[in-house]
Amino acid sequence: MNRASDVGEPVLGAAAPAETRLLRREVVLPLFALVLLAFVPIVGSAFYTEVVTRVMILAIFALSLDLLVGYTGLVSFGHAAFFGIGAYAYALLSPKNEAASLWLTLPAAIGAAAIAAALVGVFVLRTRGIYFIMVTLAFAQMFYFVFHDTDFGRGSDGITVNFKPDLKLGDITLIDLGNSNQFFYFVLAMLVAAFLFLRTVLASPLGRALHGIKVNEHRMLSLGYHVFGYKLASFTIAGTLAGFAGYLSAVQSGFANPEILSWHQSGNVLLMIILGGTGTLYGAIGGAFVFALLEQVFEALTVHWQLLLGLTIILLVLFLPGGLSEFVARVIRKPVREHADDE
């Protein structure tokens, strides 16, 4: 490679391979992965179709957290709260003896998660650093107890939904969500949509400002940016998207119980994005898949699979802090993307 391109002078000869590499990384590989995924219901059994559907829902959840952790520099340990609120909103709004309408329940679930995230954001964003981690965890625990202890959450058993929601236009059923193949493609489309949505957000002035806040909050403040407002926007978007993932999760499983907003869930989703490497949207998706794979393998090995998971986490932090994307970068000797410190 010509060194001149690093200094910033455009050199025609050096630009071309960089561009093809970019094209390969940004377009060809993701499309390849997408096509591979699309074949799962055709090739795999119904069991694997459902497993992969679940993982894709978790990937949407992980994407939403990556906006906070990877792009805004806010380490939230309570992200499962919004996932759970999305799920509970769906379960609470679904009638007992007939199917709910997706047109009604989905906006309601997303709205509930958005309102909750904005409200919680106002409180938690008053803190920073270690405080922020503890306070987000505490707020998530508060929601856990609200659903666990009060009557409307129906206690530790949670709420069961007997029918999948309808996705109808007039009288025509657009997608039968009860059919696991159709639901698979629906979730796949939603994953792509969530990915493209976050890409758009990150490329927008909002995304640039968030990046600036992550790198140097004080400088952004002195430049006149309303840092709190930007952080709140990021927190709300992330919470809303998490609520959407929670909605999909409850549609798939047919229930909402307090466990889905427990701190374990928050810890696992954090693990996913770190496994994949924070601050790379692909990493969040890859991390969700690797996490699910680890879970399956460890569960097959022993009932005490959490011990293996815990040891894996410790080794990961000690020896591979940048996650798998750093590992891949190291192996194929591509320059590792810069690591910005969070404060």
Partner: peptide, 27 residues
């Protein structure tokens, strides 16, 4: 090994420790 690392890594490693302690207790 954690003093020079950011909070995210501290959270993750100690989360791993919780899982290890809980499972060892269970065993």
């Amino acid at each position: 090994k954690l003093y020079q690392r950011d909070h995210l890594q501290q959270v993750l490693l100690t989360y791993g420790l919780i899982l290890v302690f809980e499972e060892l207790r269970s065993i």
